[in-house]
Amino acid sequence: MIELKNVSKWYGPFRVLDDCTMGIAKGEVVVICGPSGSGKSTLIKCINGLEPFKLGTITVDGVSVGDRATNLPKLRSRIGMVFQNFELFPHMTAVENIVLAQQKVLGRDRASAEAKAQVLLERMGLAEHGAKYPAQLSGGQQQRVAIARALAMQPDVMLFDEPTSALDPETIGEVLAVMKALADEGMTMMVVTHEMDFAKRVADWVVVFDHGRVIEQGPPKQIFEAPLVARTRDFLSHLGWHGESTAEAEHATRSAKGA
């Protein structure tokens, strides 16, 4: 469905993306992880053309993203994106946020757009919050509205750029639950995240990123239990991952220290 081949981007001597090659098939969930500043956010923004790239090709369902002839707005309406900072439009209510692109890009009439918005809000567990402004919603609620906004376009694939990094620990769970439900329904998803638990349980494929390049990629079982590359092991252990779930690792550490 999405193919990235040798994608590269640089500013003078600084390589933001270095020869990245990966792919995602329909219905798959791919998680991209790696240290901060490794270029993961830039990569995912290249896929829907928000960031330009200098070398390589990216094709989404046969359409080449880097091609000048490509109608980017049309392409973007088939790709849903969820941002770290939610980026809800503050001057519009939740429903209006979800309705805007339906009307202006897909040409739906206001009534059906609002109906669809209401259905999506119910799915997110936010049925009564439609008339509220983003400032009146919590972070977790705002992010779920943002997901609904993207889903309203009925995209073929959903891109998530660190969707839970700006949330409190209590609200991370509600957003991840929504994302897992989406995956279970068969949505094609690419997720940049630090939530290793989510990756282990939901991902079909994990890509490990560092300094702009893919250092390892494979099924979660391989990455988390028997990584091939030492750097992957280092990165995972930094996140508290020692081949078991984090809670077990903490327990092991504590008993080793003779607590």
């Binding site: 923004k45 973007r76 941002f83 980026e87 805007l100 692109a101 202006k104 890009v105 376009m153």
Partner: peptide, 22 residues
């Protein structure tokens, strides 16, 4: 915020639409 333009464009709005509505 710069992110607003990204969010608007990610939904498929053209530059002009993003300017006008967001």
């Amino acid at each position: 915020r710069r992110g607003q333009i990204s969010a608007a464009m990610a939904l498929g709005l053209t530059r002009l639409q993003a300017m006008r509505y967001v």
